[in-house]
Amino acid sequence: CGGNSSKDIPLETFTPEEIYTRAEFDLEAGDPEEAARLFGEVERLYPYSEWAKRALIMQAFSYHRDQDYENSRIAAQRFIDFYPAEEDVAYAQFLLALSYYDQIDEVGRDQGLTYQALQQLRLVIERHPDSEYARSAILMFDLAFDHLAAKEMEIGRYYLKKGHYAAAINRFRVVIEDFQTTSHTPEALMRLVESYLALGFVEEAQTAAAILGYNFRSTVWYQDSYELLKGQGLEPGLFGANWMGKFYRQAIRGEWL
């Protein structure tokens, strides 16, 4: 297999450039962990060289490639502290945001990481508006923001399904007031139509449907609420109705609505 591992060569004897290129070689060869270690060595042995600066940002990138998000954050943060004026700081800030963003998990789970990602992405957008990363940071910001709205919706649907309409209404209102730019607003409005109707607030349901119609007329949500209001209500599909289908859908596929 490959040449001798670079772990056992005494690095002190090499110039920073040699260690740097060795690290770059490891990165290309698909060993980001080793690359990160070597970039670290460049910085440790030659802290003042131009190479140290470039090695630090490459180290952050290698750890990220190795999905070692914790170390990637530490390296990126050190770059930001040491070289605030550097042009690469935008990339370091972006890497920091990516380290949280890539860990965002399914909607039903912990959203702590989403908050962190949002904060870091906001820093990229505000501090480095004209860098090439600002554009994708804005895109990712919207996605993460959308993700938070999805969590509110998930909890709203949980209470809606259990028949606690007041609790559901409050959650859907949060989506409409704080998250109106996200993709969940149409569904939130439709869920409000459902909840208000269930409680007997017909005018409120109509207001919600009107807002939905005015802003999102072409969406399937508006069709649903239009049907609902006309009193026909939705016909549940044959498969979904009986308890066997319900067991399969809820216990096995995990769609518990």
């Binding site: 912990d110 998930e154 606690h164 409050n170 959650r171």
Partner: peptide
């Protein structure tokens, strides 16, 4: 109770924890 916010559940789904609460928001 205005809200029940669940954090730190990296694997467990929110509803599995929430259904342990008899109290409902509001």
């Amino acid at each position: 109770i205005e809200r029940i916010d669940i954090e730190g559940n990296t694997t467990t789904l929110d509803r599995v924890v929430r259904q342990q609460f008899r109290a409902v928001e509001g």
